[in-house]
Design a binder for these strands. Structure first.
Lengths: 231, 231
DNA sequence: AAAAGTTTCAAACAATTGTTTAAATGATGA
DNA sequence: TCATCATTTAAACAATTGTTTGAAACTTTT
């Protein structure tokens, strides 16, 4: 009620972005929910793009700082020894899940973030790449020290897969509900579940890249003629 | 080669949807790329929503039929015995990856599909739920027969995580490039990598929250009486 | 060849988009 | 107090959106 117009707009935008997507959310929807004038967005942020950037930057910077802090804490506790893979995973994904458990805005934001990694919009991607540069460098280094005999490319793929699992764990609960009735209200349980899955995937035997898949069916697009529609 | 206007529109829409997203792709962009008149979309499909639906239905129906066929083939080969988890994963995700390797439209579509699972748009979600109903029922049944001791909820979560990894494996290559220079041109290698990761995650030890209440959640102590495994 | 049915086309439609303007209101400091 | 700054407001802006129209062009059937 007595909060700043600027933060009211940020909160409203965050909430609406995750519900309708970036493009489908209009400035009028945002200002209506924020109880502000339409022109307030352009006044306080300059443009819709700048608003989107502000929405992400507000929490993403803090999130990645937490990740680095967690990693540093592990490293210092270990006294310079290479970390366990489990610790690195914990530092990166654990922090994310814990933020997603925060009902006070963090949950909303993490859902939004998960949906945005694969966002096709150009400026969002470049913005994310920029914002992630440092944390990626740190974690890559930690991993290569922890598992020196795992090929770099192999690890990067697995990290990528893990990001996908995280994304779905946090933001894909709608798709999850497709599978059946599911309880996603317990953050601790989600944390334990995802951690177990991630570590299992990370520690899986390295694939024999030369080996071929079992089945040989060649994928072929289906061209099913449909009934003509009436005009 | 003179292709149908209807098909040209479908192809153009598919390609543009994955590049710009559903909302940001305009009918004028589509008809321009398809070398058709603007009114052609509404003439052949009725509306933009109906076009989107047609784009998905064209290949998704076929994909899920392939999945069911692969599952049935495994079941018949096994003579009624419960399948191995690995076979079920292979039937569901293997078919998807193989379609994603098909350069003739399948690749484009799978990227689009992966990005759309978490799409906030209401009608897309309900449409996908409808289109997936049968294949989900079949695979759930197969899994519960294969692993009767694994709690249903636990499996559904892992399946969900696997969907996330698949989605990123196929469509999140932009986010992947954020991590560093990576070669994603070899479908066989991707197949092997993702399979290894998925099986590893699926067979990871059950998390404490789940494993505690049930003492013997281990399905088969047959070969290795070592650690507790989910599968 | 004439008729009937499909498909294409250019043009316009109302609605909605992000953005801008200029005046009104509020707050702050000399 | 007055003056200066920051914020809010209603109205309008040009551009773009999906959709519709009615006539032209093309196919197929009679």
């Amino acid at each position: 009620m007595e909060t700043d117009t600027r933060t009211r707009i940020l909160d409203a935008a965050e909430s609406l972005f995750v519900r309708h997507g970036l493009d489908a959310t209009t400035l009028r929807m945002i200002t209506a929910e924020a109880q502000a004038n339409l022109a307030a967005v352009n006044y306080h942020f300059g443009s819709k793009e700048a608003l989107i950037e502000a929405v992400f930057r507000r929490r993403l910077t803090w999130l990645n700082e937490q990740r680095i802090a967690a990693l540093t804490a592990f490293e210092e506790a270990g006294g310079g020894a290479p970390l366990k893979p489990r610790q690195i995973v914990e530092a990166f994904f654990g922090v994310a899940i814990r933020m997603a458990a925060d009902r006070n805005g963090g949950q909303t934001f993490m859902r939004l973030l998960g949906r945005t990694y694969t966002e096709p919009t150009e400026f969002v991607r470049t913005f994310l790449a920029e914002e992630y540069a440092e944390v990626i460098a740190r974690f890559k280094a930690a991993f290569f020290r922890a598992l020196p005999d795992v090929p770099q490319e192999e690890f990067l793929w697995r990290f990528h897969f893990m990001m996908g699992a995280l994304s779905y764990a946090i933001s894909g609960t709608d798709a999850l509900r497709m599978l059946g009735p599911i309880d996603d209200s317990d953050p601790e349980a989600l944390y334990a579940r995802l951690m177990s899955f991630l570590i299992g995937g990370l520690r899986a035997p390295l694939p024999d890249v030369v080996a071929k898949p079992v089945a040989k069916t060649v994928a072929k697009p289906a061209r099913k003629p449909r009934a003509k529609r009436a005009a």
